[in-house]
Design a protein around this nucleic acid. Structure first.
Lengths: 122, 122
DNA sequence: CTTGACCCTACCATTCATGTCATGGTTTAT
DNA sequence: ATAAACCATGACATGAATGGTAGGGTCAAG
């Protein structure tokens, strides 16, 4: 199938499909006219890419194990676990930061509201 | 004081101090030679800016209430509360997303580890 | 008077997946 | 054969604070 059809089927923009190819995630054949020709497998492949992007992984990280996980179970692909662990550590760090900021914001909001209430009571 | 001294005192880079000015957060005088001349109040002002940046607010948001909060209590400045509320909502959204990703990652990591363990037991 | 330490402006780079043009070739249906 | 719909590449923009560099003025101490 051509790129437009793959885009329609997967809901991923043509632009992104070309980007994935540039990043080594997709390798479509080329017709005589230069058009990209995707196999039926490409559809699942794109959904897999989208899934990993949704986990916050970069295209570079995904490229490191995509071929493997398309064939085998994740547990078989040794590149997957370290990437997951690294990502998890980053997420935990971000969560800690955001949680601290949230506490701070909530305190300050509560304080401001309390002050305003006092104001009204006067 | 000149920009280098303010940078040294606050730990903020000269580059950033100039950026804050560009964003309307600082308005130093200018000497005859074109050098920026900061008042002693600028030091506290910069620390205040840094504090709000640390809460994740943008320079634009900070610019909206900085002059007020430098003089009054936060609760007096009506622009502060909506900014805090907006930021809090964004943070909550990010937390929800990150928390979901974390759960997903932890599950998948646990699964992979379980598989590997089985492997070793065989 | 020279040297080093300071200051100035203006610009590019950074991250990274995606959107959006511009420009032009190809295919399909009328 | 012509128009509409498709495809191609290449390039710039995005967000937002900060780092870095280039090219050039200013000041203070020796």
């Amino acid at each position: 199938m051509k790129i437009g059809e793959l885009a329609r089927r997967t809901g991923v923009s043509i632009r992104s499909l070309r980007y994935y190819e540039e990043q080594g995630l997709l390798k479509p054949e080329r017709g005589d006219n230069g058009y990209r020709e995707y196999s039926v497998l490409a559809e699942e492949q794109v959904r897999t890419i989208q899934f990993y992007l949704g986990l916050g992984l970069s295209t570079e990280q995904i490229a490191g194990f995509l071929q493997c996980v398309l064939i085998h179970k994740e547990a078989f692909c040794s590149e997957v676990l370290p990437v997951y662990e690294k990502k998890l550590a980053e997420i935990e760090e971000q969560l800690a930061l955001l949680t601290a900021i949230r506490s701070n914001l909530m305190e300050r909001i509560a304080y401001i509201r309390a002050e305003s209430t006092e104001e009204e009571e006067r």
